[in-house]
Design a binder for these strands. Structure first.
Lengths: 219, 219
DNA sequence: CCTACCGATCGGTAGG
DNA sequence: CCTACCGATCGGTAGG
């Protein structure tokens, strides 16, 4: 019978629910700190303090600081993927799917406690190359969800230069994704959710975005 | 008669052409390094080595590392402003002005030796708050150049939801600027200029961008 | 602009 | 997960 108290085999995901919780707490706290100050400007001591640990203890859960960054990005992509899938499943028309994508992406980028993808966008360069490749695989699936709806939009003449139904090329679809997701993702550099009365909330931001990009079908 | 050899009054812009050149060399080298590795990951030793100095010498030209960052951003904004003005002055129609803005902005972001604005976008958080305010003043003038052309585009029905000439509100115009510039600026995260044959060059990227955002006037 | 250097901090580890 | 710690590095400075 194994000794359940002994803290063994560090750095790997544990069955022990306590360890899983501590690990998740570290990831969440790191996401918040990385988003606020950047990966390089955040010290392991900052992270440890944020969850009530001493400076050396995060290394019981992670091999090194870069592994924490990688975990933050992975959690963000999987969480984002799930939110996008859920939102798409409730939408029946192309227009509704586009609205759902836009609104959900803004939530993923700006909701409290949802700093993971913003960290991915900001601190991508700090990842070691091998980790980049693993993250890209997940990111590709994420992008594919967008691309599918954008293809339908293009072909229905609801997006871009063609006002009438029109076959679209793959490069058109890729460009549409890069432009639309670029515009939305770039909000991480300027959008601040405040309690000021004149400040756009995420619903208003999503509405304005949809209005800017999507043609009304009666055009 | 002042001794022209003595290296006095550091940290301020000098009349001495040699000092101005060394300072500019430091700014250019820093821009390249910051763009590549990020501000925090670039050491003062890296910067010094890039221009053939020893580690302490950059501090003869700049009070501290953050002042180098600020200088990089200022140079970039002024240089970008000048390029935008020059490009706009050659364009006679609204459509031509929009094309000029897009193509010029891509050059500003991706030309070799033009890493300043990319640094501004990436490392904004590393600036001290007081410097941020000074930079914002210059950036506002930059943005205003864009906003003016985008307003004309909106009112002519060449951009966004309205296909016919239409009065535009200031918030529509601001949103249009944030979306269009966001999409373009976000290319710093994914666009790589390569010599591969299938790679889009900046002309192709600009064309595709204009095609995506701008309605043809015969719509 | 160099030489020589310092104080502080940081990621990470050993041993329990 | 803590204690105690280390080696390396970093921004910055004094003095010439």
């Amino acid at each position: 019978m194994p000794d359940r108290k002994s803290p063994k085999s560090p750095h790997s995901t544990q069955d022990n629910p306590d360890e899983v919780n501590r690990r998740q707490a570290l990831i969440r706290a790191s996401a918040r700190l990385f988003r606020e100050k950047g990966y390089d400007a955040t010290t392991v001591r900052d992270i440890a303090a944020a969850v009530g640990m001493r400076s050396g203890s995060p290394f019981y859960h992670f091999k090194n600081k870069q592994e924490i960054l990688k975990a933050v990005m992975e959690v963000g992509l999987h969480q984002g993927f799930d939110r996008i899938v859920a939102a798409l499943s409730k939408a029946t028309t192309v227009q509704a799917r586009f609205r759902a994508l836009v609104r959900t992406q803004y939530g993923i980028l700006h909701d409290d406690g949802s700093e993971f993808i913003a960290v991915l966008l900001y601190d991508w360069r700090s990842l070691p190359t091998e980790s980049m490749q693993e993250i890209i695989r997940v990111k590709d699936r994420y992008d594919a969800l967008w691309q599918e709806t954008l293809r339908e939009m293009l072909q229905a003449g609801l997006l871009g230069a063609h006002t009438h139904p029109h076959p679209s090329s793959e490069s058109d679809e890729k460009m549409a994704r890069l432009m639309v997701m670029g515009a939305i993702n770039f909000t991480v550099t300027w959008y601040k959710q405040k309690t000021e009365p004149d400040q756009m909330d995420l619903d208003a931001l999503a509405d304005a975005t949809v209005r800017f990009f999507m043609r009304s079908s009666t055009n």
